[in-house]
């Protein structure tokens, strides 16, 4: 009951916006320009088979592969930059530069290099996703206080012990925040990659529906993408509560 009350403002806002959307769509009365939420829901039901058996699994696979690779790259880079100052000076500007490159402009190149298969989309997802992970985790590792590190040294701690028992647990909240930020980005990256060149996936499906002027069909995969993002973020939040339960104590 308490939980329901807590979420009440969000529920009221969302339902109000949907009602407003429904009214505006009914007033415009042109589904190819602005389909109503009801029309989108109906279209999702009609297209349930290709959407849920082919395209959603494909996009989720791209998303999860992109996220996994980003986490591996992000964690390794953050650890190296934390350990070696020279590496930090060498890598940090390069990492920031990767985010100034317009991905939509160069993504077709990835298709050229890696083909229409899954990896060109995974690459788009990785490039978009690894940045928040590496930056947040790096900041998290740096956030341990110098005096705490020195206290560990006075207790005879090795560098590995300082990392494992001080820096890493201290960086966990930043890590989870980064993952929560990265999940929607990873989904956007996957859909963007599919939009630019693919034969399956929700991004590809949305583009195909657009060529058919099927407004509700364009929105259907977008809604599914949003729901997927919310579910994955909710799962990450559950893990965060489990592993960083001390955070609420602060």
């Amino acid at each position: 009951m308490k939980k329901a009350v807590k979420h009440l403002p969000a529920i009221i806002t969302s339902v109000s916006l949907l009602i407003l959307w429904q009214i505006i769509a009914m007033l415009i009365n042109a589904a190819y320009i602005l389909p109503s939420p009801v029309q989108i829901a109906v279209r999702i039901w009609e297209l349930r088979e290709p959407l849920f058996t082919v395209h959603t699994p494909y996009t989720m696979l791209v998303t999860l592969l992109g996220l996994l690779i980003s986490i591996i790259i992000g964690v390794i880079l953050a650890m190296i930059m934390d350990r070696y100052e020279t590496a930090e000076r060498a890598l940090y500007p390069v990492i920031v530069t990767t985010q100034t490159v317009p991905i939509t402009a160069i993504a077709p190149l990835f298709v050229l290099w890696l083909g229409y298969g899954i990896w060109s989309k995974v690459l788009v997802s990785v490039i978009i996703t690894f940045f928040p992970i590496v930056v947040s985790l790096h900041d998290g590792l740096k956030s341990s206080k110098r005096e705490s590190e020195e206290l560990f040294q006075t207790m005879g701690a090795s560098k590995a012990a300082i990392f494992l028992k001080l820096k890493l647990p201290g960086a966990l909240p930043s890590f989870f925040s980064a993952i929560k930020m990265a999940v929607p980005l990873s989904i956007i990256g996957a859909a963007m990659g599919e939009w630019l060149g693919s034969q399956s996936g929700l991004g590809y499906f949305s583009k195909r529906m657009m060529t058919q002027l099927d407004g509700a069909g364009v929105f259907a995969p977008v809604v599914i993408l949003a729901v997927c993002a919310m579910l994955v973020v909710a799962f990450i939040s559950f893990l965060e509560r489990k592993f960083v339960k001390w955070r609420k104590e602060i």
């Binding site: 005096e147 705490s148 207790m155 028992k165 001080l166 201290g170 960083v244 001390w246 104590e249």
Partner: peptide
């Protein structure tokens, strides 16, 4: 040290056992 520098993610007991662990 001047400030307690206890690790917030460790319970009181685990803050003390830290010295043994190290």
């Amino acid at each position: 040290p001047q400030r307690d520098l206890l690790l917030p993610w460790r319970t009181v007991l685990k803050n003390v056992t830290l010295a043994f662990e190290l």
